[in-house]
């Protein structure tokens, strides 16, 4: 299935239980590098497990918490 890139949204605005795939990580800082290193690469399945000031996201089979503001750098394609 072909997605248009415009449809990718930051994970910070996803709701609890929303699933999809990672489209990309923006930024060249340490956080972005670490997120990539732990497997947050394009095409990897992702789900939001907790929303709030600290969000919990599942990337592949790992779960991480990070601040909502930082989660904005992860763009994902929400599954319908």
């Amino acid at each position: 299935m072909a997605y248009a890139t415009e449809d990718a949204t930051p994970l910070s605005i996803w709701g609890r239980g929303d699933e999809g795939t990672i489209e990309g990580i923006s930024g060249a800082n340490q956080l972005a590098a670490r997120l990539r290193e732990i497997g947050a690469m394009p095409g990897v399945p992702v789900r939001v497990l907790r929303v709030g000031s600290t969000v919990v996201i599942q990337v592949g089979s790992s779960r991480f918490c990070l601040r909502k503001t930082d989660a904005a750098c992860i763009k994902g394609m929400k599954a319908a």
Binding site: N29, L31, I38, T54, R63, F64, C65, R67, D70
Partner: peptide, 8 residues
């Protein structure tokens, strides 16, 4: 600073 922590 950012906060990133794994939940095992």
């Amino acid at each position: 600073t950012p906060f990133l922590l794994e939940l095992p």
